[in-house]
């Protein structure tokens, strides 16, 4: 399939960042009910596995995650195209992260140093910054709500801090043990509105995610996102790791404040 191979090779990038990183178990707003009712179709052991994973993730203040990712786009015809890329995240709670999303289609680096977020495109040589709040969790929200930047895999970092997440599940069960990249993991399958998702969680402690697949069920072609993750936990990550230093040839540009535009009715 000579024709199609290049398409696959021309991968994407996207992925942005995963990282959402580090969400400190921030005090959730008062919206979380004490004990949300969970669907009887969600097996207790599957739910417990998710919670255990969430605890394992929150237990780490410094981490590095490297992931191989694929993402699918659906064309108007219903045909799906899959693109591949890598995602590298390094985070130091509560207020530093850096992400690198690389593919042949898009190449982005995102820095958060506790004060501001900078998005940089090495290939285009342009960067933009915005003032950021004091924690990773808050910054994730600002990035998403004001600047339309969504950090992939943020779910992983907030699982267990938002009780409403479990209540959204309509189904959940253990599929079976499976090896991912040589690691012994357990494969779980969940469903909720608009998404079916599967997660592979390390069978041994710490209970870190090995792989995540999210299926968008809103489109009949069901595009999927997939990330195979590897975790490492350095003892320290220096400030310099999170500081963006503009290369000489780069130029600063603006980033659109989507929230402001919508508030002013600028978008129709």
């Amino acid at each position: 399939m000579k024709i199609f191979r290049p398409i696959l090779a021309g991968c994407t990038a996207w992925l942005l960042l995963a990282a959402g990183a580090a969400t400190v178990a921030a005090p959730q707003q008062s919206k979380a009910p004490p004990t949300p009712s969970v669907s009887p179709n969600v097996d207790a052991d599957a739910l417990a596995a998710l919670e255990k994973m969430g605890a394992a993730l929150r237990a780490r203040n410094i981490f590095v995650m490297n992931a191989d990712v694929t993402k699918e786009d659906v064309l108007d015809s219903g045909e799906k195209l899959q693109f591949a890329g890598t995602l590298d995240v390094r985070a130091r709670r509560p207020d530093h992260f850096r992400m690198s999303l690389v593919s042949d289609l898009q190449d982005r680096q995102i820095y958060y140093d506790g004060k501001s977020v900078t998005v940089y495109s090495p290939r285009l040589g342009v960067y933009a910054s915005f003032t950021a709040p004091a924690t990773i969790a808050q910054t994730l929200n600002v990035a998403r709500e004001r600047y339309d930047i969504e950090l992939p895999l943020a779910d992983l970092f907030t699982w267990g801090t938002d009780n409403s997440a479990a209540a959204k599940l309509t189904s959940g069960f253990l599929v079976r043990p499976e090896r991912i990249g040589g690691r012994a993991c357990n494969h779980y399958a969940f469903r909720q509105q608009n998404a079916d998702w599967q997660i592979w969680i390390a069978a041994e402690e710490p209970s870190l995610p090995c792989k995540l697949v999210i299926t968008n069920t809103q489109d009949e072609s069901r595009p999927q996102y997939s990330a195979v993750m590897r975790w490492t936990f350095p003892a320290t990550l220096a400030d310099a790791e999170f500081a963006f230093v503009p290369p000489v040839s780069s130029n600063k540009i603006v980033i659109v404040d989507v929230a402001s535009m919508q508030a002013s009715g600028a978008t129709k």
Binding site: V74, D148, D155, D162, T215, S221, P223
Partner: peptide, 25 residues
């Protein structure tokens, strides 16, 4: 004409996607 427009895409988040992500594609 019928250019190859992307009509939707995969989501990289289960719970953290914007509403627009779902409805706006």
């Amino acid at each position: 004409g019928a250019a190859h427009q992307v009509r939707s895409t995969a989501s990289s988040n289960v719970n953290h996607n914007r509403a627009a992500n779902v409805a706006g594609n």
